[in-house]
Design a protein around this nucleic acid. Structure first.
Lengths: 206, 206
DNA sequence: TGACTGAATAATCCGCGAAGCATTCACTTC
DNA sequence: GAAGTGAATGCTTCGCGGATTATTCAGTCA
C-alpha cells in the first residue's frame, strides 16, 4: 500500500531505468527517445517493452524514486529526537518547501518531469498525497500519545493541514518569491495553526 | 488605489465594452475579432483603438467588472448585521468559493477569460489579491474594535489567511470534487484557524 | 480640432504534408 | 521458451505557406 515500497525491478529493468533517468535529467522527457534509451542499454526498442509498458511508465518509475526519496527525507527530519509535535509539523512543511524549492531551481528537468507525470497520472498523484498524509498521521499519532496534541480525527486533520499548506506546494509560487520570504509566510501560517491546536488542547482538558 | 473604482468610461467606450463582453461570453476571447466588435458598434476597427489600447485591454476591462462585482458581493455578505468576526471570516471564504465555483460551472467562458487575463496581466492579478486583502483587513479591523479578535498586524494576518485558503481559490480543484465536499473541507480548515485566533485572544487577555 | 475611417502592415493562427517517434509483432537466437 | 530483434504501423509533432486578424496611420469628415 505505501508507495515507498517499490516493486522489485530485475537487473535489466534497473539498467533501463538508469539510462532513461540520465537522459530525462539532461534533456527532459520530450527530448528523450526510446531508441536512445535502448541504444544506451545495447538493446532494441522492442525489448524495452518487455520491462515497461510504455515510455510514460519509465518516467513514472523515475519520479516514483524521486518522490519516495523525498518521503524518506521527510520522515528523517520528523523523527529527529527531541522534537515536540508542533516542531515536527513545522519541520515537515518547511522541509517539504525546501526540497521542492531546491529541486525547482537546481534540477529544473527533474521538476518538470515530475509535474508532467503528475498531470498525466492522476492515480499516482493521489497515491503520493496519501503517502504524505500518512507521515502527517504518524506525527499526529505520536503527538496524541505524548499528550502533546488533542486530535480527534487524524486523517481529517492531516487533510486539513495539506489544504492549508497547499500554496507552498504549488508551483506557481516558485516564480514569485525568494525562499526566505516563502519560508517566513509558511512560519506565520504554522504559528496560527499551532495556536489552533493549542486552543483545542485547552478545550479538551476542560 | 482600490480596484473597485473603475476609471470612468465615456459613452463610446462603454458601448465597445458592452459589445465585446457579449461576444466574449458567447464565443470566447479567441473567437471574437476586433472587426466584429467594431461592426456591432457601427464603427471602424481603427476607432476602437481610440478607446482601448488593445484587445487584451478590452478583455481586462471586462474581467475588471466581473471582479469588482465579486468584491462587491463579498463586502455585502460580510457586512450583514449580526455577524461576529469569525462568522464574517467564514462567510468571506465560503462566498468566494461559491462564486468562483458557480462561475466555473455555469459561465465557463467568463471563467476561462478571467484565467487568461490573470495569466497575461500579472499586475492585475496582484491588484486583485490586494483588493481582497483589503476586505479581509476591514473585517479584522472591525473585529479588533469590537474586541472580537486579537490581531497585532492586520495586513500580515490577511496575507496568512489568503495563503491558508489558497487551495480553494485554485482552479485545479474545480475538476476534482463536488461543491459540498470542498465547502466541508473549507469549514474544517476555518474551524482550526478560528481556534487559533481564539487562543491568541486568550493569550492577549493574560 | 477631435472623432472617425479603412487600406496597409505585421504578427499570429491554421491546415496539411512530411518527418519523427512510440508501440507492436512476426521472427531470430541461445 | 525466455530474451531479444528491427522493420512495419499508426500516432503525434513540426514546419511552412496561405489566410486571418490585431494594430497602425495617413487621410476624411463635420
Amino acid at each position: 500500500m505505501p508507495m515507498t515500497v517499490l516493486p522489485p525491478l530485475d537487473e535489466t529493468a534497473r539498467a533501463i531505468l538508469e539510462a532513461a533517468s540520465k537522459r530525462f535529467l539532461h534533456y527532459g522527457y520530450g527530448k528523450t527517445t526510446m531508441s536512445e534509451i535502448a541504444g544506451d542499454c545495447n538493446m532494441s526498442t522492442g525489448n524495452l517493452y518487455r520491462y515497461f509498458p510504455s515510455k510514460l511508465d519509465i518516467a513514472e518509475a523515475f519520479v516514483r524514486q524521486l518522490r519516495s526519496d523525498q518521503i524518506r527525507r521527510l520522515r528523517e527530519v520528523m523523527s529527529r529526537p527531541g522534537l515536540s509535535t508542533p516542531e515536527k509539523l513545522r519541520a515537515f512543511f518547511k522541509t517539504k518547501l525546501k526540497l521542492v524549492y531546491e529541486r525547482f531551481h537546481s534540477r529544473p528537468k527533474a521538476y518538470e518531469l515530475s509535474q508532467e507525470i503528475l498531470k498525466e497520472r492522476l492515480a499516482f498523484a493521489e497515491e503520493w498525497e496519501s503517502a504524505e498524509a500518512l507521515v502527517l498521521c504518524e506525527i499526529l499519532e505520536a503527538g496524541e500519545l505524548a499528550g502533546d496534541l488533542a486530535v480527534c480525527n487524524r486523517v481529517r486533520i492531516a487533510r486539513i493541514l495539506q489544504d492549508a499548506f497547499f500554496r507552498f506546494a504549488s508551483s506557481a509560487i516558485y516564480f514569485e518569491g525568494e525562499y526566505e520570504v516563502l519560508a517566513g509566510e509558511l512560519d506565520d501560517l504554522m504559528d496560527l495553526i499551532l495556536d489552533g491546536f493549542a486552543h483545542r488542547q485547552l478545550q479538551a482538558k476542560m
